[in-house]
């Protein structure tokens, strides 16, 4: 029982991280129609920015996380506005642009920080007793912040003018423009919002997991997995699938060990594609 609860809490905490990543990925795809291959890169960058602030500049960790969010959002905004925006209707070209950015980001970080993992620790440690189980404090903190970020994102999207504009552009870009919505203003914001979320996740999670130039790849793979599972372009689907993926991973690693969990998930995704190609909560996939 204790083991079960432990796995459930780890799974939820993983799920919340995956949800932040997948929600950002889905925002970019849903609104811009762009597959963001650089998503793992922004996660990584968030981790390294936070690390640099803490280790090199002596900034307190919470402030370092905020700086990481600002830096990744700013880079996303600039990248969208000056590069992606020029080819935003060509899905293959935008994909290649984000791939190029990812290669530059990960190689740049490799050149700067070297191939070894960084000594980056979460400032809080120790465990809290929850009923029969002990849960690492840092996991709970990350879970709480991730959930808060998800709620904040929901408020932005469903309770503000900006969110209304973004959803309108995702639903029908041509008509939204004819109503006076400006993609040139809103697309960079959407991209920055999403990359900022990836940066936040990186800054929060890398001190617990690991921070090395390779950490972007599995993040990208998990984001893909999640959005396929949830149905491309569906925010609710992405969030739901993220928690499912987190729980499956946690339970598999507790009860089976090794990489079986990941393998099960991948095969699950393939099966899902056979029987329900639009994902769990997917709607019709937008053109291309």
């Amino acid at each position: 029982m204790a083991q079960f609860l432990q796995a459930a809490i780890i799974g939820l905490s993983l799920g919340a991280q995956y949800a932040l990543l997948a929600l950002g990925f889905t925002l970019i795809f849903g609104i811009l129609g762009v597959v963001n291959f650089a998503h793992g890169g922004f996660y990584m960058l968030g981790g390294y920015v936070a690390y640099s602030c803490v280790a090199l500049l002596g900034v307190p960790y919470p402030l370092a996380v905020l700086i990481a969010v600002a830096a990744t959002a700013a880079l996303g905004w600039v990248f969208e506005l000056f590069l992606l925006e020029r080819l935003v209707d060509d899905h293959l070209a935008t994909l290649m642009l984000t791939l190029g950015l990812y290669l530059i980001l990960s190689n740049g970080l490799l050149q700067t920080f070297g191939p070894l993992a960084m000594e980056f620790r979460f400032p809080v440690s120790g465990a809290i007793r929850l009923g029969p189980v002990y849960v690492p404090q840092e996991n709970l903190i990350v879970l709480a912040i991730c959930l808060a970020a998800i709620v904040a994102l929901w408020v932005v999207l469903y309770r503000t003018d900006l969110g209304r504009g973004l959803r309108a552009l995702a639903d029908d870009r041509a008509v939204a423009m004819a109503q006076g919505l400006r993609p040139k203003l809103l697309f960079p914001m959407a991209f920055a919002l999403a990359t900022g979320l990836a940066g936040l996740t990186g800054a929060l999670v890398t001190p617990i997991l690991a921070l090395s130039p390779g950490v972007g790849d599995p993040v990208l793979a998990t984001s893909f997995l999640t959005v396929i599972l949830g149905g491309l372009g569906s925010l609710q689907g992405a969030a739901l699938a993220a928690f499912a993926v987190g729980l499956v991973e946690a339970f598999c690693s507790v009860y089976f060990g090794g990489s079986i969990g990941a393998l099960i998930l991948f095969v699950l995704v393939l099966l899902l594609l056979v029987f329900r190609p639009t994902g769990l909560l997917g709607r019709t996939v937008r053109g291309a």
Binding site: V35, L92, A221, I228, L232, G287
Partner: peptide, 16 residues
């Protein structure tokens, strides 16, 4: 499936 799914699925395939 459409092109975007193809990209994602082939990526996942290599991981599998």
């Amino acid at each position: 499936l459409r092109g975007t799914y193809f990209v994602l699925v082939t990526f996942v395939l290599s991981e599998i």
